[in-house]
């Protein structure tokens, strides 16, 4: 009995000591990005990472980059060393953004194992991106609107999986994507996107 108990203790201890659990780091809440927006200003592309935080204010970090991949690298290098995208849920792209950038970013999202295929992807006007930067509740509102749109119009692609597959589809030359607008309140509509083959 004692030998069995000793074996069990040794097994648990060795699992903790040698698998890296003993020196595991607790990721700071302020390093977890749930929402990312991308917009173009003065010919430059700006990626903004909205981070989880306990405070009332919106915590975000913006970087100039050519793609989401390099934005992640630069954000990690310069501002948030422990940046984690494992809870990444919402990706908003400026409606005026070059389609090639969106395509590259979706390529990056699809190739990273830690990113969910169900990340919501939508186009957004300048006002709604501004609204995201001001209100902490905005991402949740956007997600609810996207779900409502999907329920109403099943053909609209709202996540990275379906948008990616529509872009690279051999069958379709155009597909439908969600577009968020903000005037007095948030609204969402479907927008047709043409794909050059």
């Amino acid at each position: 009995m004692n030998r069995k108990f000793l074996c069990l203790v040794i097994a648990v201890m060795s699992a903790l000591l040698f698998t890296g659990c003993s020196d595991s780091k607790k990721i700071d809440k302020a390093s977890i990005a749930e929402t990312v927006t991308v917009r173009q200003t003065g010919g430059q592309t700006i990626y903004t990472f909205y981070l989880l935080s306990s405070s009332e204010d919106v915590k975000s970090v913006s970087v100039f980059a050519n793609s989401l991949e390099s934005a992640c690298y630069l954000a990690k290098e310069n501002y948030i060393p422990n940046l984690s995208l494992s809870k990444f849920e919402l990706f908003l792209a400026d409606e005026d953004l070059s389609f090639d950038i969106l395509k590259t970013d979706l390529q990056f999202i699809s190739s990273e194992y830690y990113l969910s295929p169900l990340i919501m992807v939508t186009l957004a006007d300048g006002n709604s991106i501004k609204y995201i930067s001001e209100s902490k509740e905005a991402p949740k509102e956007v997600e609810e609107h996207l779900m409502l749109l999907k329920n109403k119009n099943n053909e609209t692609d709202i996540n990275s999986l379906s948008v990616f597959n529509s872009i690279y589809s051999k069958k379709q030359n155009e597909f439908s994507m969600a577009c968020i607008n903000y005037e007095d309140e948030l609204s969402v509509s479907a927008r047709k996107i043409s794909v050059k083959k």
Binding site: S110, S111, Y113, P117, L118, N165
Partner: peptide, 22 residues
Amino acid sequence: FVLGDYGRQQSFQFFTLSKSAK
């Protein structure tokens, strides 16, 4: 029919399939 071309980007597609379950 769920992952399509998205699945071709990743190895171990069944893992990605399990991630897309909702």
